[in-house]
């Protein structure tokens, strides 16, 4: 893992990507800080982070689109496979290098609340609480972006898919409000089950596994419908709100340090890194 991490970090330091990513990240946070903390003279730095966390929609694809897709395209994935490294070593090495590229500009952003505190009363615990959550939110989203990059050989395709997924993550809680009728819920749940089954089919190359996932998901929806038909109207909105990564971040923006949200971010990151390893292994089995 150390070798892959050092190599990736070296590639980032030589290339333009890490610097562009860092510049945009600091620009987004900087604009937020300027609007809220300087122009509007609000003492809460967390508001700037809360408003401009939407910047992840553009930033995460920039960072993650090439990480595995390019390896496949250049056939350098074969080099990594033939070296005495495990798939976990490879994925974690790459992930931690991206995490480093993300965390370095965030360290710069950590200075902002201190600078503002020189000119007025800034409540530093909530500012730094939000900064910590912002980092964990970013790490979870980077893991999702990395998984998307593992699904394709095309950087463009990976970036496009990643933007769509980031937008969904960002607005899933708001979208949930529009899903009111039982019929719409039912259709949406069936579509989600089908998409999940397709994903499993792609990862495992097994029709049986895909069909099994589809059947299990539909059975779960059927059970909910039979046991409590009324709950179906709120099932999807509830799920979307509960699973929303961004919604949990707003808790920190409102001044509450929610440890369960940090655990949730770490779980999401671990889950998608696990999927990345499976996706990487899949190539060994299917060529």
């Amino acid at each position: 893992m150390k070798a892959v991490f050092k190599h990736e970090a070296g590639l980032y330091s030589h290339g333009l990507l890490a610097y562009v990513f860092g510049a945009f990240l600091l620009e987004f946070i900087g604009i937020g800080a300027m609007l809220y903390n300087i122009n509007a003279a609000v003492a809460n730095f967390e508001y700037a982070l809360g408003t401009f966390c939407i910047g992840f929609v553009a930033l995460v694809p920039i960072l993650t689109m090439r990480v595995l897709a390019e390896e496949k395209k250049q056939k350098t994935d074969q080099l990594l496979s033939l070296l005495p490294l495990s798939s976990t070593d490879i994925i974690l090495g790459k992930y931690f290098a991206m995490a480093l590229v993300f965390v370095i500009p965030m360290l710069v952003a950590c200075v902002y609340p201190l600078i503002f505190s020189l000119y007025g009363e800034v409540y530093l615990p909530t500012s730094y609480g939000a900064l910590i959550a912002f980092v964990f939110l970013g790490l979870a989203l980077i893991a999702i972006g990395m998984f998307i990059s593992s699904l394709t050989e095309s950087q463009g395709m990976a970036a496009g898919l990643c933007v769509v997924v980031m937008l969904f993550c960002c607005y899933s809680a708001s979208l949930a409000d529009y899903i009111a009728s039982t019929a719409f819920n039912l259709v949406a749940l069936v579509v989600i089950a089908a998409l999940l089954a397709l994903l499993v089919r792609r990862l495992t190359c097994s029709d049986a596994a895909g069909i099994l996932v589809l059947v299990l998901c539909l059975a779960a929806v059927g059970v909910v419908w039979l046991v409590n038909p009324d709950s179906l109207a709120t099932l999807l909105p509830d799920l979307m709100s509960r699973l929303s990564l961004f919604e949990r971040f707003y808790t920190f923006v409102n001044g509450v340090f929610d440890v369960t949200a940090i655990v949730y971010y770490l779980s999401v990151a671990a889950f998608f890194l696990f999927l990345c390893v499976q996706s990487w292994e899949k190539k060994r089995y299917n060529g």
Binding site: L11, H14, G15, Q74, K75, T76, L79, L82
Partner: peptide
């Protein structure tokens, strides 16, 4: 084992 695949897997920016 040392292996050279059919297409040498090289990082061309290095």
């Amino acid at each position: 084992i040392g292996y050279l695949p059919e297409i040498p897997p090289l990082y061309t920016d290095e």
